[in-house]
Write a protein that binds this DNA or RNA. Structure first.
Lengths: 116, 116
DNA sequence: TAAAGTGTCAACCACTTGGTTAAATGTTGG
DNA sequence: CCAACATTTAACCAAGTGGTTGACACTTTA
């Protein structure tokens, strides 16, 4: 069965955690936000009315889903995207594209050519 | 900002519902199962130890996320995949591919050529 | 029409979520 | 060392989840 698998060095990170993390609009907004530029927790929290503790919990969930990475610089935690979770989600979803998107055939041919 | 948007006649079906629906492994397994062949509720429920009512609730969630369609034939409800939910999820995720998958550039050029 | 079959709905339960506030844990600067 | 800053943890709460069972509704068949 041809699929997008070859795009993904696939370790199946827990899809329950990943999709659950993505199911909340605050968490999706945070991801969109840090996609432009990595940020500290406080910077991430600024647009939201909720407490810093609440944002901290959201980030914990995003972290355990491998959707973000964090590193410490002094007393700051700096957050950026982590490809792993996104790739797992993308890989799972990609299976279904073939059921309706005929153009995918062309994509797959291109990718296979690129690898051979 | 270039993206996969042109692959998706985009009505933004509720991403909270979609990703929440996808966050449960029983529901993901059901989707995988019906991707091969449309099925009745009872057929869908057969592999699981849970009650028919529980499966019925899972299908309700999948339905409200536009991940499945149902039609009635006599006393049977027949379930099959619905592209809408998958496309919304795919569209949302596609935004993030550009942050790590360099090959996407080639894909996008191909698709744009295909449309012009 | 009655019985059997397909599926949903309502009420319930243990558990989780998404938020709160308050206290605790680094870390930096004076 | 002490105070201020950055962030997490703990305890709590209302609402939602994922499952159960039992009653209900619709359709087919005998």
């Amino acid at each position: 069965m041809v699929s997008f698998n070859h795009m993904v060095k696939s370790i199946a990170y827990d899809l329950d955690l990943i999709f659950h993390a993505l199911s909340n609009s605050t968490r999706r907004a945070i991801l969109r936000d840090i996609s432009r530029c990595e940020k500290t927790i406080k910077e991430i929290a600024k647009p939201y009315k909720m407490s810093l503790a609440a944002v901290s919990k959201h980030l914990k969930m995003l972290g355990s889903a491998h959707l973000i990475k964090r590193r410490k610089e002094g007393s700051f935690h700096i957050i950026k995207l982590n490809a792993k979770g996104f790739k797992s989600a993308e890989q799972w979803l990609s299976y279904y594209q073939k059921f309706w998107d005929r153009r995918l055939d062309a994509l797959e041919r291109l990718l296979e050519e690129g690898e051979e």
